[in-house]
């Protein structure tokens, strides 16, 4: 397999300036930051504490010829629109390179208020075919984060008909969700606030459930080999960016980041799929294979 024509970038979710500095100096091309004034899909512990910290993050990203984004990937109550738009506009003015959104209402509002920037569609918005991609492109989206549950065969037409829209991926063998995350209302740590030192309630989708015949049922997901194989194919279809999500547990985010960098380098070397599956499986074994660990830890 030949090398892809274009290098795939790496974007990392960060919670403060120290993390931004850490990842930007170790191979990240972009970081994205949340702030409480702009609602986003994450627990409180995943947000920046101050705007000043985001300004410093923008500055260091630009000094390194890299980028910083604002994450606004939640559904907004109307009362939050003016404050969110004002904050986003101020950050765009200050140099932030784009906004990650999920809510079409806020996207319309931002655009009506004259906010001109790069808009990324969160994976939470569910874009599974080129018609959906067109739907969001019509509304001003420049990049789509591909949902995790897309096969390479399904993704081909999306890549073929993207018409300038960038496509971002998760590092699938390291971060994969059993069910469609935005449509799931079962119990899991994602919906809980972190109490330091206290383990959150377990993921329903990772727990043993019992059928009437006494058999154990676990919600299924594809195995690591499939996830690696899919990642390999999506990379060679021309994915633009790979994503490492934010998390309240920095040790885990660093581990996922390092493994993602390694896996990305394997892809960039242009190695065969068989070799990638072998080496990728070895690397992925060292890292998490599902979701996030919600026990809080700081850098």
């Amino acid at each position: 397999m030949k090398k892809a024509d274009k290098r795939m970038g790496l974007t990392v979710g960060v919670r403060n300036f120290r993390e931004a500095e850490y990842f930007l100096n170790r191979g990240a091309d972009e970081v994205y930051c949340g702030i409480p004034q702009v609602p986003n899909h994450g627990v409180k512990a995943e947000n920046f504490g101050s705007l000043e910290d985001i300004h410093r993050t923008i500055d260091i990203a630009h000094a390194l010829k890299k980028k910083a984004f604002l994450v606004a990937n939640d559904i907004f109550p109307h009362k939050d629109f003016p404050k969110a738009a004002k904050t986003a506009a101020a950050l765009v003015e200050r140099g932030i390179d784009g906004v990650i959104i999920r809510d079409m209402a806020i996207l319309d509002y931002f655009r009506k208020k004259g906010l001109k920037t790069h808009f990324t569609l969160s994976t939470l918005a569910l874009c599974f075919n080129s018609g959906s991609l067109g739907f969001f492109r019509d509304r001003g989206i420049s990049r789509v984060v591909l949902p995790q549950q897309v096969t390479p065969e399904e993704a081909k037409p999306l890549f073929r008909n993207r018409k300038g829209v960038e496509i971002e991926l998760f590092c699938l063998p390291l971060f994969y969700e059993t069910n469609l995350n935005p449509l799931c209302s079962m119990w899991c740590p994602c919906g809980q606030e972190i109490v330091p030192g206290k383990a959150p309630r377990p993921f329903t989708c990772q727990s043993d459930l019992y059928r009437p015949d006494g058999e154990i049922f676990r919600m299924p997901m594809p195995d690591t080999r499939w996830l690696l194989s899919t990642l390999y194919d999506l990379y060679h279809l021309g994915a633009d960016m790979m994503k490492v999500a934010r998390g309240p547990n920095i040790e885990e985010v660093i581990q996922v980041f390092n493994t993602t960098v390694y896996i990305t380098k394997l892809l960039e070397k242009g190695i065969s799929k068989e070799l990638f599956l072998h080496e990728g499986a070895r690397a992925a074994k060292q890292a998490q294979n599902y979701g996030k660990n919600y026990i809080f830890s700081a850098l």
Binding site: V150, N179, L180, L183, C184, M219, P220
Partner: peptide, 17 residues
């Protein structure tokens, strides 16, 4: 009431496409 769904079918053990 709907609670969750996966495109990886629990019966088929493959994607729904």
């Amino acid at each position: 009431r709907f609670r969750s769904t996966s495109r990886y079918c629990p019966h088929l053990k493959d994607f729904v496409s």
